[in-house]
Amino acid sequence: MSALAVRGLCVEFASARGIVRAVQNVSFDLAPGERLGLVGESGSGKTTTALSLLSLIRPPGRIASGEILLDGVDIARATPSALRRMRAARIALVPQGAMNALNPVLTCGAQFADLFAAHGAPGGTARIAKLLASVGLGVEVATLYPHQLSGGMKQRVCIALAIALRPAVIVADEPTSALDVIVQKQILKTLLAVQRDIGAAVVLVGHDMGLMAQFAHRIGVMYAGRLVELAFVRDIFATPRHPYTRMLIDSLPGFGARGVFKGIPGLPPSLLTALPGCSFAPRCPRAGPRCTVEMPQTRILEGGGEVRCHDA
């Protein structure tokens, strides 16, 4: 029994130039207590996927098709009141850019209080103090306003908010991207500790493969709105099957020659026009004639991984 099942998720944005297909046919299962990392370059649809999981896509975007199953309820089609009850209580969000994620005119304590009030949950200062302590913050933070906190502290408050009702799933969208390396590690440690404590499954979005390898059980690689590879951390680093995954791993900074920035040549394709073949084909060193005409389907590999590539 999985904690969360995503089936054929498609998300579109209506724009003046046409329909942007930001997420296309993404499917994955999340086991209880599992930590799944989602990586991919900017614009690959990570945030869009993450927000869909709580049905937080705003117009002009919409979940065009697919199912997001949690406790037997399809979040993509749940009623507003059912959604409201599930959010934070069953599936919680740690937002991208915690800098502006807290209401500037409310104290942190008040932002916990309205969460408890919305769910009819017992709150109180003692409960808030305990939550703050679990993310390494002092009780006095409850009386402070967001602008009185550092970026790292704000991110911790967001994590404490996310675990407040002990949800089954936590979706964390680049919780560390605006922070320095030391604070990044501390925040991930905190997230790991609270996740273990409440036994929640986590979807962690990021683009740092190295950081992700230390946190996640499995890693999903997104490219142009599609999940192109999904495998256990060990397998994906040892034997990356998709050429894009390989290039991502190869572009990790190592001890190579000075002044050489390894990267992936070319740019991701426009999401406005649907290519008939693989969306990575134009940049792929291994692309054959088949790749530009036929969309590769997801194949299950022996080790439990999945890949979307004709050549893998």
Binding site: P95, V105, D114, A118
Partner: peptide, 24 residues
């Protein structure tokens, strides 16, 4: 962003609109 988080916290639409939106 804080409106999005308020939604993710499961606050009612009315409360978000009045206490977060209009207030600010």
């Amino acid at each position: 962003d804080y409106i999005m988080l308020a939604e993710a916290k499961g606050l009612s639409e009315r409360r978000i609109f009045l206490a977060y939106g209009v207030r600010n």
